[in-house]
């Protein structure tokens, strides 16, 4: 029988593990809604992680660390933006380039920060929810970013469906030629969406290095950027489902840490495969239904745009 303390510990670490995925995937969702697939999430997360860590360690200011991580991610994402929107480069190739460059740049400049650790972010106590029986204690152990990521999902969902900005963004992603004919600047909208995606990937990276571990290790994202891309497909481009997917991955990922506590007689290497295997599994389950993907994917996803006039 699993005792409630262990269950709470598992849920808390699952929600923390899910947070960088939610942030990065939410950013990618917006980019894809605008019609671009950015496979550079892994690279942008690493850039955000190393810059956020450097600022967090030197200043001790988490808000500043997150802001710098976000700015670095956004700035870095503009390389992808310029390649795709100005130089008409294949989106997959440009994203891969960003991932390789981000991995290299972060490892190069991160060498100075390797092996140093900082004090993690303290959890906050939520007023009413922490009074709840059994699960209440969970709301005393989570940090503010966990809640902010969830709030951001709601806000992005509302902006996409209920506002003019969201409508323009979706129009650009669904049919860039029509949006262009209506007088919207496809290139400007996409640049903004790409920068937004970069900022959120950067924040996801900063959460990893400043809060979750909290230290900087070369290549520490370990495929989380790619899982974030897969999550967007899994969520069929809907923010609410994205959170569910991220929690699922969080749960699967923490099995490696809590496997022994749960009495699982599975080697840790095999448990470490689980998040990746589950990613493949859910991708297969979702993609099998080609009609659903076609109905939900933005119409111009991945297609190059050249203004006709």
């Amino acid at each position: 029988m699993i005792d409630s303390a262990l269950m709470i510990a598992i849920l808390v670490s699952a929600m923390r593990t899910a947070t960088p995925l939610i942030l990065a995937a939410l950013g990618e969702l917006v980019v894809e809604k605008a019609g671009c697939v950015n496979l550079g999430v892994e690279g942008m997360m690493l850039v955000g992680a190393v810059t956020g860590f450097a600022v967090g360690l030197t200043t001790g200011n988490f808000a500043l660390a997150f802001m710098v991580g976000a700015l670095a991610g956004a700035g870095f994402s503009l390389i992808y933006g310029v390649l795709v929107l100005v130089f008409q480069v294949n989106q997959y190739a440009a994203g891969l380039a960003l991932t390789i460059l981000g991995g290299g740049a972060s490892a190069f400049w991160g060498q100075t920060w390797q092996g140093r650790n900082m004090r993690g972010l303290q959890p906050v106590e939520l007023p009413v929810l922490s009074e709840l029986p059994v699960i209440g204690v969970m709301f005393t152990r989570l940090d503010v970013v966990v809640y902010m990521a969830l709030a951001a999902t709601v806000i992005v969902g509302l902006i996409l469906t209920r506002t003019r900005v969201g409508l323009i963004l979706r129009a650009v992603g669904e049919n860039h030629d029509s949006a262009h004919a209506l007088g919207f600047s496809v290139v400007k909208v996409r640049f903004a969406a790409i920068a937004f995606g970069g900022a959120f990937a950067g924040m996801g990276g900063a959460y990893l290095s400043c809060v979750m571990t909290p230290l900087w290790i070369e290549g520490m994202t370990a495929g989380r950027g790619w899982i974030a891309v897969a999550l967007v497909v899994f969520a069929t481009w809907k923010p609410a489902r994205l959170v569910l997917g991220a929690w699922l991955f969080g749960l699967v990922s923490v099995m490696q840490i809590h496997g022994q506590g749960l009495g699982l007689a599975v080697p840790s290497h095999v448990l470490a495969m689980l998040p990746y295997l589950v990613t493949i599994l859910v991708l297969v389950l979702i993609s099998r239904d080609a009609t659903r993907i076609r109905l939900n994917a933005p119409g111009c996803l991945g297609k190059p745009f050249r203004p006709t006039a």
Binding site: G43, I79, V82, L83, F87, Q88, V89, N90, A93, A94, L96, A97, L98, I100, L101, G102, G103, G104, A105, A107, F108, G110, Q111, E218
Partner: peptide
Amino acid sequence: VPVAVAQLFQGVLLVTLLASDVLVRY
């Protein structure tokens, strides 16, 4: 020099190559 310089060069090479490729079609 950190050994990661090799991956950094790879990234720069791919980015500059993709950008230079614009001249092939335009």
